[in-house]
Simulated scan of single mutants.
Amino acid sequence: MHSISAFARRVGLTPSALRFYDDCGVLAPARVDPLTGYRYYSAEQEERAVLLRGLRAAGVPLADVAVVLDGTPEAARELLHAHAARLREQTDAAGAALAELLRALPPSGPVRTRLGGPELASAVRQVVPAAARDGAVPELRCVLIELAVTGTRLVATDRYRLAVRELKPLATDGEPRELLVPAPALIEAAAWATRRPEVTIEAGTGEARLVAGDDTAPLPLAEGSFPAYREVLRALGEPAHRVLVDRLALRDAVDAGSSPWVLDVRADELDAGGTTLPAVCAGPARLAFDPAVLGPALEAGVGPDVLLEITAADRPVVVRSADQGSFTTLVMPVAHP
């Protein structure tokens, strides 16, 4: 038998924590002296105490601790998986909130992000078609470039389509920064970057450029605020249908169709504007698209297959490539004919 102080040292808990866990009924002492009230613990309780310490270090609520300590292994495993999922969601939400706060602060100095030149050029080619060609909102004629240690992101939208491409930088130095670059200027910069193995995006106060050795290419910046695209991504929800189909076959069916172009999801096949295509899917679902919007989204994909994630006929459809998870396009359906 060990006194509460000796047992606390052996299991890495404090005497006050042991008293608290006794009061809560999750770790009672083996014996309590009826005259002095001193608590004593046995060696057999060490394993439970160490496990309890680990659960608390992992942030498991005390109400759930008993399930792990006294329940079945299956119940404990299910609870810990659920707790891990909650922690990931909280961490992601906190990270996104901090990133938003950092972006809102005035920059304290320049930022430098080093990327593969051909990779940057490829990302520009995929994202730029989603930028608006004209219209009253000048920000929509630009591409948003987000620079951060966690990654570089290119975003463009014309309100009917949203394209997002993630790039993993070779190195980043400086605080997060957002650049709003007119699409034509970014196309010129991408043509310059594609011939360089590596390029560095250097952004200071009110100016930015691409650097490769002694060569530079300007990145003109536009004024304004890019739309809050993250809210659109967060509001997507769980898709009701997932459709896996040959990307080029679907693109050809879109190109050959008229507007509005109708997609009927059936059991393991699609009626794609009157063309039947084999697919991995489960219907029924029926949507209509503007071919001028859906076609370029399919053309910008990579690989033989495309995955469509459908939530509803009046919600954006997510277009993903199995061969390039870093590129995502959202396409807005139109009204049924």
Results as ranks from 00 to 15, higher is better:
A185I: 01
L140Y: 02
L221Y: 05
Q45K: 03
L180E: 00
A76E: 07
P304N: 01
A66E: 14
A66Y: 00
L98Q: 14
I145S: 06
T328H: 06
C142R: 11
K168R: 13
P176H: 02
G174L: 05
G204C: 13
A312I: 13
S321P: 11
H2V: 09
T152W: 10
D70F: 01
P182D: 02
A132W: 05
A217W: 10
P220Q: 08
A97C: 05
L35A: 14
V254E: 12
G37V: 01
L167I: 04
D215K: 04
A96I: 02
P107A: 11
V331G: 08
L62V: 14
R133L: 14
I4M: 05
R161Y: 04
P260V: 04
Y160V: 07
A322M: 12
T72C: 03
R209N: 11
T150I: 03
L298N: 02
S3Y: 03
P73L: 09
V334A: 08
A93T: 15
Y41K: 07
A132E: 08
V164W: 03
L250R: 07
Y160W: 13
Y41M: 11
A156S: 01
Q90K: 14
P284V: 02
A75H: 08
A222R: 02
P278V: 04
G204S: 03
V334F: 01
T113A: 15
S258G: 13
D215C: 13
A8F: 09
E198P: 09
A148Y: 07
P169A: 06
P106K: 08
R266H: 08
P304C: 00
R141D: 10
R88T: 15
A57Y: 11
W261A: 07
L13M: 15
V199Q: 11
A217R: 06
S108W: 10
R315N: 02
L52V: 12
L330P: 10
F7D: 00
T311Y: 04
L98T: 14
A76Y: 11
V111H: 01
L87Y: 14
L221D: 05
D314V: 13
V164F: 05
G303D: 11
L101P: 03
G274Y: 06
R165P: 03
P284I: 05
A240F: 04
S258T: 15
E46R: 00
E238T: 15
R159N: 07
T216M: 02
L62P: 01
L270S: 10
P61S: 11
